[in-house]
Design a protein around this nucleic acid. Structure first.
Lengths: 249, 249
DNA sequence: GTTCACATTTGACGTTCCGTCATTTTTTGA
DNA sequence: TCAAAAAATGACGGAACGTCAAATGTGAAC
């Protein structure tokens, strides 16, 4: 009986915590197998073989559950991003690597990204519990900060001239660009008909041009950007990419 | 009795068409007064003083109604954008003017933009009737094409060098940047805490840098970009801006 | 003017989902 | 062993979407 005498509630608490993650994992499975619109509290309860009331003892509302799913997705995203941060190479390369991480993540966890987009539209954030809201904002800040640190390092190192736009402004611009592309991509518009063959490549090219415009050295030799991207991909995200190819060959 | 003898159904058809627009106008009012989440078919029927069944004879499903609202919003957006297209000035100025039109539109019709974002997440587009879907895609194409024509004109005129990225790629990049900023802005994240004081200004600056990176002449003199933007705003969208200031002084 | 076929309108109904809460079941501690 | 506290349950209320049989209106023929 390995029961801690100082915490007689510990076993129960552990059970509750386990069930909590179980519910979240069920929800995520549902998300992947049947898509966002099939994700309902009743369905989670049914699949978890608990009653709805019990589920509602873990999550005061649906938004809270979505919020926690969202947080765990952001954590996974940040974990990928951190690999870019510690990558050996120029600041500019690190930044591109961070972008690639983002892109790989969307390919890998498409449904989670879709869920996050649904989550961020409307006033869902407002219904979150303060703690979850704070954790969400902190994570958002951590991702923002990670990119900002690259930008500031580049400025300190002299790779990127200081200018009218602050480091934060630059990060906001990069964020908008990638987030916008992600959002557009996920609503199946007929890009091919509009003349855009590969949206990821288009964004990579524009990102390079934006960095060039900012005077961020080393400037892109327009010819080798693509190969460098491929190289970064295969070095940093080898196993993820093979997993992605198994999903959609 | 101005009844056309060739079309005895004409009066009835006119009535139906009128009611159709009436329903849409009610829906839009609801959207503005009470926000997206209050927009329900029951509520529209109630406010229009018709039964729900009648509403459903005009719109096979809620998505269809949203789709038509979306289309009319896109038309208004395009109307603003066309003013930028005929603006006298460099190609680059015209492009910036188009972006400003977008920005003014979001300030002016915030709730419609929010509705369009909700509309574009999830698989709503798939539930549209083929005609509406086609009209939507055409409008999307028209807006895309408007920007693309500026880009191509600039290439033809020699202001913008031809390069690895096609005109379509460039338009997609610009679209991502503005759409992403719009989307981020509408979910009330604590940008100030992250160090971004004015998201619009941040995007303008990044846009300028992106164009610089593409080698689009005349390059921005970093000092006067802001004033040029203000000038364009006041010249092209004077009345809209004063209307916006009345809304939020 | 009456009648009848056809078109239009209606709102009650079925369904799904969120969230609540009185009741029942389980656990705990004396 | 038993009573009090904690936890689980699912029936219930309410909101929203979408359906459809019945009611109402319309126009044409006689």
């Amino acid at each position: 009986m390995p029961t801690n005498s100082m915490a007689p509630l510990s076993r129960k608490q552990r059970e509750i915590a386990e069930r909590h993650t179980h519910f979240l994992s069920i929800a995520r499975t549902l998300l992947h197998e049947e898509g966002f619109h099939q994700l309902s509290m009743d369905r989670v309860a049914e699949l978890a073989e608990y009653s709805k009331g019990t589920v509602y003892q873990h999550f005061p509302c649906k938004e809270e559950m979505l919020g926690q799913l969202c947080i765990s997705a952001m954590q996974r995203m940040l974990a990928l991003g951190r690999r870019a941060l510690v990558h050996q190479g120029s600041h500019r390369e690190r930044l591109m690597a961070f972008f690639i991480a983002h892109d790989v993540f969307q390919k890998l966890e498409f449904n989670d990204v879709l869920m996050m987009q649904n989550f961020h539209t409307d006033q869902v954030l407002e219904k979150l519990s303060p703690i979850t809201r704070q954790r969400h904002d902190e994570l958002e800040g951590a991702i923002f900060g990670a990119v900002k640190s690259i930008v500031e390092d580049a400025m300190d190192a002299g790779d990127l001239p200081r200018q009218q736009a602050s480091a934060s402004d630059i990060v906001f611009g990069l964020w908008s660009l990638t987030h916008g592309a992600e959002s557009l991509r996920s609503c199946n518009l007929p890009f091919a008909e509009l003349g855009v063959e590969d949206t990821t490549m288009a964004v990579v090219l524009m990102l390079e041009k934006l960095l060039d415009g900012l005077g961020w050295k080393p400037m892109s030799d327009s010819c080798c950007s693509f190969e460098k991207i491929q190289e970064l991909k295969s070095v940093l995200f080898k196993e993820e990419l093979s997993a992605a190819q198994q999903l959609q060959p």
